[in-house]
Amino acid sequence: MARNLANEPARVAVMFRKMLVIRAFEEAAGENFFAGHIRGSVHQYIGEESIAVGICENLRDDDYLTSNHRGHGHSIAKGADPRAMMLELFGKVGGTSNGKGGSMHIADFSVGMLGANGVIADGCTISVGAAQAVKLLGQDRIVVNFIGDGGINRGPFMEALNWAKVYELPVLFVCENNQIAASTTTRLVTAGGGIAKRAESFDVPAITIDGNDLFAVDSTAGRVVSEIRNGSGPQLIQAMTYRLRGHFAHDDAGYRDAGEAEAALEHEPIRRTESWLLENGLSQDEIDGMRDEVKAEITGFVEDAEQADWPDPSLAFTDVQDVGAPIVPGAEQ
């Protein structure tokens, strides 16, 4: 089943473009955060784009995905509209949640994206439940749960691994191991043999790959997704990567060794994929053109977000619950 991307430069170019969209989105999110246009917290996915794109390229629209606080890349890769996402980051009407959720609560149920999540590892338990619904309803969807290396020390991760295996659920856990949990080096606070070993202790097959290698992610995901859809039960992919920025936009990552992030640039996924494309038929002009086009698109979304309407204050009181509505007299549901 393993797919050899080297034979498919067109597929690589499509994925490369999605990675560029994520990168440009995240750069714009950071810029607008510092410019004061985006409030709260922005956790950028810069440097990890190949994982979301390589995994999601192997999913169907109706497959489910749960994400974490660093969810912009997962959402775009799963097919959420980056324009609506940018509007959401700005808190404007037309955002994925019309401004009610913001960066950490991006969701697009129309493409199976069941939500980013502000609580570490909570997506794990939601995923196994969604998979139980899939089984009960006789569907052949699978559920993908993105979790970071910091999340593996929470109980819900271990409960969900056990649960997924006990009921042989169609769940793919993807642990993006960027080796640092906020500002704490994960291995210093993690006992045992690591993420893959934890999964294996539950008889959940686990594979560790270079997450910055789009080819490795795509071919591994292609095989594993197909196995899960055909009834293998849950599996885990540990994708090694590196967070090129701080935990959130306003974190300068001063806890890192000098030169560490610069050295990591050599291995970052966009540069690596670009080199491959240059060796396999695309010209620098074509790539630059693609990059400019994507940048212009995202700039347009930012302009749209700046100009979009603020939500009417009455919207604060809607979509809470059916029973007991309206929350305040006159508020529509």
């Binding site: 995923s127 139980q132 109980g155």
Partner: peptide, 17 residues
Amino acid sequence: SESTIMGAAVGAAMGGT
């Protein structure tokens, strides 16, 4: 696994059950 009993119910409810 109380967390997962509750969390799985959330996911299963989102999944149409």
